[in-house]
């Protein structure tokens, strides 16, 4: 199974850390989302985070909301998520995580979802509205299948909750950089650095920072203290405005942030 931990470790050895790129499946079309994901990897993205469009995405800002709403209007189905993972992993070596709100997994069946994701070559799940406290079914299914499970940590999380999140996560812990929803921000919050420091002190092997990162300089800044940087809205905007080529170009630019000097 293609999991994320070895890639994060390798990129922290040979560079400053890993670049993780997010795109929603089915935007602007299923085919183009697959092409764009491949282009990200070919331009230096180390790990893919594929979002499954969902009707009520409470963690997402306007750019991703607009993209996923269009994907739903175009007829996105959950089966397209597995198809996209399969097509991408056939072409590139990077591990592919699925980012999904929890209800689609519940309705598909947690075990069935895990089996089909593993069969498609997926690495695991990022679950923005599932906390470990509510995640017993998923923890069991991912243990059974070996899939990664990425839970979120927030600047407001207490120490006991951070310990619980580290314990429940496999692959990395998703450190939410700031209090807020997805979307590019001019200044990254100091809260991200503090949060990653707390996670490391509590024993986290890998923390990747997401929410608000849109430039190579921000990637470099984050990789100064974290093991990975996650870019979402900026890539989605590039894809929306300039197509696959623009998304690839931005990925190449962001990847420069993984190598200091």
């Amino acid at each position: 199974m293609r999991t994320v931990a070895p890639v994060i470790a390798r990129r922290n050895d040979e560079a400053d850390g890993a670049l993780i790129g997010y795109l929603p499946v089915g935007f602007p079309t299923l085919d183009e989302s697959v092409e764009a994901a491949v282009a990200l990897v070919e331009n230096g993205v180390d790990i893919l985070e594929l979002g499954l469009p969902y009707s009520d995405p409470v963690m997402d800002g306007p750019v991703i909301q607009a993209a996923t709403q269009q994907a739903l209007a175009n007829g996105f189905r959950l089966s397209h998520g597995f198809e996209a993972v399969r097509r991408i992993t056939e072409r590139v070596a990077a591990p592919v995580l699925i980012m999904t709100y929890w209800n689609p997994v519940v309705q598909y069946g947690v075990d069935r979802f895990a089996d089909d994701l593993a069969a498609a070559g997926g690495a695991g799940l990022i679950t923005p509205d599932l906390i470990p406290d509510e995640g017993a079914d998923w923890i069991a299914a991912s243990d059974r299948t070996g899939l990664d499970r990425v839970f979120l940590a927030a600047p407001t999380s207490t120490d006991p909750r951070l310990a619980q999140t580290i314990d429940a996560s496999r692959g990395f812990v998703y450190a939410v950089s700031t209090m807020g929803i997805t979307g590019a921000r001019a200044d990254l919050d100091e809260a991200a650095r503090t949060l990653v420091g707390r996670l490391q002190a509590a024993g986290a092997e890998a923390s990747c920072v997401g929410v608000g990162i849109s430039t190579a300089a921000q990637v470099a800044e984050v990789l100064g203290y974290a093991q990975g940087a996650i870019v979402g809205s900026a890539l989605v905007r590039a894809l929306a405005e300039g197509g696959v080529q623009a998304a690839g170009s931005l990925a190449a630019e962001l990847a420069r942030g993984t190598r200091s000097e």
Binding site: D129, L152, A153, V176
Partner: peptide, 14 residues
């Protein structure tokens, strides 16, 4: 029931 929300809200709910 339960609490199916982003971790960012847990401190506020607590």
């Amino acid at each position: 029931g339960g609490r199916f929300v982003p971790e960012s809200l847990i401190a506020a709910l607590d």
